[in-house]
Design a protein around this nucleic acid. Structure first.
Lengths: 222, 222
DNA sequence: ATCAACCAACCGTCCGTTCGGTAGGTTACT
DNA sequence: AGTAACCTACCGAACGGACGGTTGGTTGAT
């Protein structure tokens, strides 16, 4: 069903080969996200790739190594769009916050990388390095960009200063939870009314901006 | 279907017993939360209980049934304390919100029930009924109580009206995400500085109350 | 005598992994 | 040009062990 848009596989065969290893990683990501680590067998992965199980061990020394490759690659591409929003000088501070939030919603809910939290939680005790890689390569990258965006607004006098830790959790918490909820309740037919992405995102954004906007000299002075 | 297949109303002696069945459920909850569903074997569970594997099948017909019992029991006790806070007429609206938030933090982070989200996400495709039970018995129970507490404040003129969907996610999102993050990053030695419960909780509470408080006639006049 | 509770042993299946081998292309030395 | 060696990519078959689940039998309190 997944068809590479390459009509001729032998065009410059040694330069651009998307084949096998990348294909294995892609299929593995799908399966791991769907069934979990222990629930995904090498046999099922081999079948999904259309090759023999033993062939997997030509590309990866073990199931654990394959999994680590799965969850430690691809973070940077998810971060790039966020950085572009951060660096876009044409935006107002409020608009930059809105764009950044929308991008984080997109990353967390639509991309495999964002949906990995339950998976990493599952294996974090067995393979602690994946938690470290996920945290350093993905979590703090996002947090730093959001903090920088807010700090720039504060320095320009557009935003009020709020507690940083609380704001981080107020921004990322609802997004992560919405993503996980949508995975938990995929079976429920009412999922789109219970957990509608666009509606939650817009409302979330409005409330965050309420907190960031400077209140018109109400009680800030003692 | 399994139900009361006990023709004798003899319920006098099974009131207070250490009850293997309860012990099995407790051990199973610990193992499932730690290793996931597929990662927990009936052998390992039997060993944790100090009994033979076959004995498990005396109490539960299958691994799946045992798991369902694990994740569909015990919600009500977690809800009770919340209801008491809701019904406590001696509290101010703000204080009631603070108490309720603190209780949700406690439930979600300290009790097994609250930490089940990744586990249920793992099996939601295989066993959809656990997702339904978790949602109906736990999620919406909490949401309804919180909404009722806020609505009471609005009716009394103590709180401003905010978008309900957004406020729900703003309240529960950070708590669920904090709980999952603390599970993901248990291995990291910096977890208490990265994800400190009390500090996040207090800051979260302050920000929520900022949104709920009526602003002093700034632009609320419609 | 009954019967819930428990146990030892086992079943067939699937697990992750390994081994030996095949096909085809590239290189290296005559 | 011939050919032997080597390399990557893959496959068929099998390994030992662990899996979920079953059986038949043994307790021990009632």
């Amino acid at each position: 069903m997944e068809k590479e848009d390459e009509p001729k596989p032998e065009s410059a065969q040694d330069k651009e080969r998307p084949s096998r290893r990348a294909e294995i990683l892609e299929q593995a990501r799908t399966l791991f996200l769907d069934k979990g680590y222990a629930g995904t067998s090498m046999s099922a992965l081999a079948k999904a790739c259309g090759i023999q199980k033993a062939s997997l061990y030509h590309h990866f020394p073990s199931k654990e190594a394959l999994f680590i490759a799965c969850v430690t690659e691809g973070y940077d591409v998810a971060i790039l769009a966020l950085q572009e929003i951060q660096d876009d000088r044409a935006l107002t501070h409020e608009e930059r916050v809105r764009r950044a939030l929308a991008e984080i919603y997109r990353i967390t809910i639509d991309s495999p990388v964002g949906r990995m939290s339950p998976l990493i939680a599952e294996v974090s005790r067995q393979i602690p390095e994946v938690a470290r890689a996920f945290h350093d390569g993905f979590i703090i990258q996002q947090h730093e960009i959001v903090n920088a965006i807010i700090d720039a607004g504060i320095e320009d006098g557009a935003f009020a200063r709020q507690d940083r830790l609380g704001m981080e959790h107020l921004i990322f918490g609802p997004i992560v939870t919405l993503s996980i909820s949508r995975q938990m309740f995929t079976g429920l037919e009412t999922i789109e009314t219970l957990f509608p992405v666009a509606q939650v995102r817009d409302s979330h954004c409005d409330l965050i901006l309420q907190l960031l906007r400077k209140q018109p000299e109400s009680d800030s002075a003692a």
